[in-house]
Amino acid sequence: MKRIFAVVLMIALLAGSAYGAALPKLRVGYVPEPAHGLYFVAKEKGFFKEEGVDVDLYQFGSAAEGMAALKAEKLDVGTFGTTAPLVFISKGSEFTFIGGMMIGGQAIITRPERLAELSGKDLKVYKGKKIGLVKLSTGDVIFKGALKKAGIDYKKDVNFVEFGSVAAVVEAVKKGAVDAGLVFPPHFSLAEKNHGLKVAHYIEDFYPDYTCCRIVAPTAQVKANPDTYRRFLAGLIRAYRFYKTNPDETVKIYTRALKIDEDIIRNETYVKRVAESNPDPLRKGILDFWQHIRDAGYITHDYPIDQHINTTLYKQALDSIVKREPKDKVYQQMLAFYKKNN
């Protein structure tokens, strides 16, 4: 009996390893950001392998380090904000945006006694104010874009103060050195919890569905292995459905992977919904983001960024899943969202 069991076990192990070995591998880099959790869901729930791709995840301490690894071909995929890939591409790096990971997520914090003064849905409340930010962060670029869209000349009417880190922005708000500060998750939750500061606005209040962290890959590899990347995106699309329909388990997966307080993750992800983990490439959002960087004068040279956005792979991945489950509401919503934003 024991012998039969051993033989069965060996066959199962061999079959398993052969299955794993047959799958194309992707090395995926990310930064530990709560809304980047779709990677962990797709990996833990087996969506990547079911779609036919073997994914190894690598955490990086900064966007610049991650982009350097991508450039050195130590990674096949990277999720390192929007600014960093745009800066690298504009300097000649051959990367292609193939999807997204996070939409929204930035907030404006202030001291409790200033909250009333900054309330309301009109960006004019920020005219004449001193606002702390980290230069070229998504919050910086998008908030300036929102002000411009609202017809406010932010170069004249708002006093922006640049800080070296988001911790320094929080500190400046706390000390009253600035009226408000632009921060990203989970810093506003931490600022509320640890320092009694308040969120005056989420930038989404003024600029719906703006792009945050995008998924990029080396252009040559995308061209050489489109099917692998399509399978990878299919895994993420299925992870998105799981995240939309299984909040409790998703929070546990995010918490385990990112080692951030479970309450903060639940609060940001499902209660306040400050950011959405969404794999849509958001082509229009990337182009807007680039324009906002240029408008702010951070990069004076123009470059046709659109050449570096591939929406086809995502659309094909989504179509293949919709074909399998045509009545699924989440996938239908993703399809509508894709049509609107690409």
Partner: peptide
């Protein structure tokens, strides 16, 4: 971070530099 945010020369250099910012709770 070491010299303080208020140093005017460092501030001017930072205003000019195009450096992709850190994000997230980094382990840098």
């Amino acid at each position: 971070e070491g010299e303080g945010e208020s140093n005017p020369v460092l501030k001017k250099l930072a205003e000019k530099a195009v450096c992709p910012p850190d994000c997230c709770p980094t382990g840098k």
